[in-house]
Measured scan of single mutants.
Amino acid sequence: MRVFPVYAPKLIVKHARIFLTGVIWVKDLGRLEFEKGRFLLPRKSLPKVKQAILELNELIEAQN
């Protein structure tokens, strides 16, 4: 598990694309899981977490 002390979308996306499957922890967002290079949306999450995951997945799609 990698810990990101700040929310840096480009760096987080780079990590997810390299490792494809895993878990990261982002300060103020908490634990985020990714599989096959995409972030998974938890069943229950705060609106800011949901927005961050959608933003990260959009960045991943834009890079493909």
Rank of each mutant, 00 (worst) to 15 (best):
V23Y: 13
I53V: 09
I18M: 06
P42T: 09
A16I: 10
V3R: 12
K48V: 06
F4Q: 00
K36C: 13
F39K: 06
K48N: 07
I53S: 03
K48A: 08
K14R: 11
M1W: 00
A52F: 02
V13E: 05
F39I: 05
E35V: 12
D28Q: 13
P47K: 13
G37Y: 04
E35T: 10
L29I: 09
G30R: 00
K10V: 13
E33I: 14
K44A: 06
E61F: 08
V23D: 07
I53K: 00
R17N: 09
I18R: 11
T21H: 13
I24S: 01
I12G: 00
K44M: 05
A8W: 13
L54M: 11
P5Y: 15
A16N: 00
G22T: 01
L54N: 08
P42R: 11
K14P: 05
L20I: 10
A8D: 09
L29R: 02
Y7F: 05
L11F: 05
P42W: 06
R31I: 05
N64V: 14
K10C: 14
E35S: 12
G30H: 02
S45Y: 09
M1G: 15
E55A: 07
L20K: 05
P47Y: 09
G22Y: 03
N64G: 09
F19Y: 14
P5C: 15
R31N: 04
T21V: 13
V6D: 04
P47H: 10
E58D: 08
Q63P: 06
L54H: 14
A52T: 06
P47V: 12
R2W: 15
W25A: 05
A52Q: 03
Y7V: 00
L59F: 05
K10I: 12
R31A: 02
I18K: 12
E58W: 10
K48W: 06
K36D: 11
R38D: 03
A16W: 03
N64L: 09
S45P: 08
E55P: 00
R43Q: 09
P9N: 02
R43A: 08
E35Q: 13
D28A: 14
K44C: 11
K10R: 09
L54S: 09
P5I: 14
R17Q: 13
E33C: 14
V23K: 15
T21P: 01
N57V: 03
L32T: 00
F4L: 03
R17W: 11
F19C: 15
L41N: 08
R38S: 08
R31V: 05
N64M: 10
I53D: 00
K48S: 06
F34V: 04
K27W: 13
P47R: 14
N57K: 02
W25D: 10
V3I: 02
V23A: 04
P47S: 12
